[in-house]
């Protein structure tokens, strides 16, 4: 009885995804009419310049925000470990809240914040600018990267904090005992110990940004990212080409997520 229920749940979860994968290899023209096996749609998608442009944007945005989030999140996690008492509880709480807040809220909030800031700063720049055409800040690459970095940074903080908590403090002392100054200890012991968490944080940040539609949709301005491109294509009807793109994206994200999982798991290997 319970087993039947479980099978049903998994079927419900994965059948649509399996269908997309299946239909992405459809040799026919119609998305809902399976005709034979072929990779034509993958070849077609690979030649779609609009799609490729969006993909390039997505890769740049995901890379930039993952690098920024990993760097700042790791620094924040290291700083937070020295915090004690109510301040620590507050910051921990704020970090978790940042992860829990729905994407749509982050999207709208970031949009409003950015537009308001741009209004003020653009006016200011226009006043101060000596030449004729002052530069104008607007939505685009920068705003998507900023919004994704903010969210992903919270992810990185949580992951790296967990690594720090699981790390043996005695290793730091052992390093100091063996004549390594604090910087050398950080480089040779702390960083390698945290590395699995940091890399996992980077991969999760990257996939989050690469897959994100909701936040990007609000703050993208006229920029196309891959998820936005897919969304706008679907409005013209689901083609097997979209299925092919979806399958490729899924494969890529899954690989990154599984790698992150493996890293986090292996990092837990006991020290003794």
């Amino acid at each position: 009885m319970l087993r039947g229920y479980a099978i049903f749940v998994y079927l419900f979860l994965y059948a649509p995804i399996a269908l997309i994968v299946l239909f992405s290899f459809n040799s026919g023209n119609n998305a809902s009419d399976l005709q034979g096996f072929a990779v034509t749609w993958y070849i077609k998608a690979a030649g779609n310049t609009l799609m490729l442009g969006a993909l390039k944007n997505s890769v740049i945005i995901a890379t930039a925000s993952a690098i920024l989030a990993t760097f700042m999140g790791t620094m924040a996690a290291l700083a937070l470990q020295n915090l004690r008492g109510p301040l620590r509880v507050l910051f921990d709480g704020l970090t978790y809240v940042a992860i829990m807040v729905p994407g749509i809220v982050i999207g709208i909030a970031t949009l409003i914040a950015l537009v308001t800031t741009f209004d003020v700063t653009n006016a200011l720049i226009a006043d101060l600018w000596p030449g004729e055409a002052p530069p104008k800040l607007g939505l685009g690459y920068g705003s998507i990267i900023a919004a994704h970095t903010l969210f992903a940074m919270a992810l990185v903080i949580v992951i790296v904090r967990a690594r720090i908590a699981g790390m043996d403090r005695a290793l730091i002392e052992a390093s100091a005992d063996l004549y390594a100054d604090p910087l050398a200890t950080f480089r040779q012991v702390t960083l390698p110990q945290l590395a699995p968490g940091i890399i996992a944080g980077f991969l999760l940040s990257f996939t989050f940004s690469f897959d994100d539609f909701v936040i990007a949709f609000f703050v993208a301005g006229s920029q196309q990212t891959l998820p936005i491109y897919v969304f706008s294509s679907i409005r013209r009807g689901v083609t097997p080409e979209i299925n092919a793109i979806g399958t490729a994206v899924m494969l890529f994200s899954l690989t990154a997520l599984i790698t992150a999982q493996v890293l986090l798991r292996r990092g837990k290997r006991p020290a003794q």
Binding site: A174, Y179, R269
Partner: peptide, 20 residues
């Protein structure tokens, strides 16, 4: 004087060997 400038070395209770 900080630990890293003292001419002493310690064998820790749980050894604290560097796992990496």
């Amino acid at each position: 004087v900080p630990a890293y400038r003292r001419p002493v070395n310690m064998v820790f209770q749980h050894y604290a060997l560097f796992p990496h």
